[in-house]
Amino acid sequence: MSIQKIVEQALHDGYLTPAMEAEVGQICDTASELSMEDYTALDKLMGALLTGEVAAIQRKQFINVMEELVLTEAIARVAEIEITSGHTLDVGDIAAYALNRLPPLYATTEEGANYQRQRAQEELQALIAQQIDEAIARNLDRPDFFPERQAIGKSTGNEVLKQVSTLLQAYAPNFEQTHIW
């Protein structure tokens, strides 16, 4: 969308969204030179913002308190297991597994975050521990992969075909036998 269209939309709607603001910023950053119409539109937008004809909608900052609680618990548990057992665990995998099974606790203010922390301590601590236990058990059950193994990469069709063919030759060498008549 052009700067003029974004400004027209903002004037029509009466507000400038963060997405509209970001798009105007991107256009200004990437354009080598703005047209006179673009400058006029930006001037009109600035005037409308100053007079209150257009309101800029603020980006809302928020956090998921559950993420910090799960990460704190997961790091402590993983460190304890790694020290006592010698196993190496992936904290990110464990946290992601648990977070996918727990309710989010979003907050937009420090007071809200404190409330969510308190609520989680009282009502959800056992559930958090249970999900981290399950995540650790699954992580420990995962087989160790051989270092020479490679995932099939994202590439063109011919390269994928070659990779699949190589895998088939390695793991099923007698699958396709050619017959000479």
Rank of each mutant, 00 (worst) to 15 (best):
S2Q: 11
I3Q: 07
Q4F: 04
Q9I: 10
L11S: 05
H12P: 00
D13R: 14
D13F: 04
Y15I: 05
Y15A: 03
T17K: 06
A22S: 13
V24G: 05
Q26H: 15
Q26G: 08
Q26I: 11
I27W: 02
I27L: 14
I27Y: 08
D29V: 08
T30L: 10
T30N: 09
E33G: 07
S35W: 05
M36N: 14
M36V: 14
E37H: 11
D38Y: 02
Y39I: 12
Y39L: 14
T40L: 09
L42H: 06
L42S: 05
G47I: 08
A48L: 06
A48N: 02
L49N: 06
A56S: 13
Q58N: 08
Q58D: 10
R59V: 15
K60A: 07
Q61W: 08
I63Y: 01
I63T: 15
I63C: 07
V65C: 02
M66Y: 03
E67L: 02
E67N: 13
L69T: 06
E73N: 10
E73C: 04
E73Q: 14
A74R: 03
A74Y: 01
A74P: 00
R77I: 01
A79P: 02
E82Q: 11
E82S: 08
S85G: 02
H87P: 04
D90R: 04
D90S: 09
G92S: 13
D93V: 07
I94P: 00
I94T: 04
I94R: 03
A96I: 09
A96R: 09
A98P: 03
A98L: 06
P103V: 01
L105Q: 11
L105G: 06
A107N: 02
T109Y: 01
T109I: 07
E110R: 09
E110V: 14
E110K: 06
E111A: 12
G112Q: 03
N114Y: 08
Q116M: 11
R117D: 02
Q118P: 03
Q121N: 12
E122M: 12
E123Y: 05
E123W: 03
L124A: 06
A126I: 08
I128D: 07
I128Q: 05
Q130F: 07
Q130C: 05
Q131A: 12
I132Q: 02
D133L: 05
D133W: 01
E134A: 14
A135K: 03
A135D: 01
I136N: 01
N139H: 09
N139E: 15
N139G: 08
D141E: 09
R142N: 01
E148R: 10
R149C: 10
R149A: 15
Q150H: 13
Q150S: 11
Q150W: 00
I152C: 00
K154H: 11
K154W: 07
S155V: 13
S155L: 05
G157W: 05
E159K: 08
E159Q: 13
L161F: 15
V164W: 01
S165I: 12
T166A: 14
L167K: 07
L167W: 10
L167E: 04
L168P: 07
A170P: 03
A172L: 12
P173E: 04
P173L: 00
P173D: 01
N174T: 13
H179F: 10
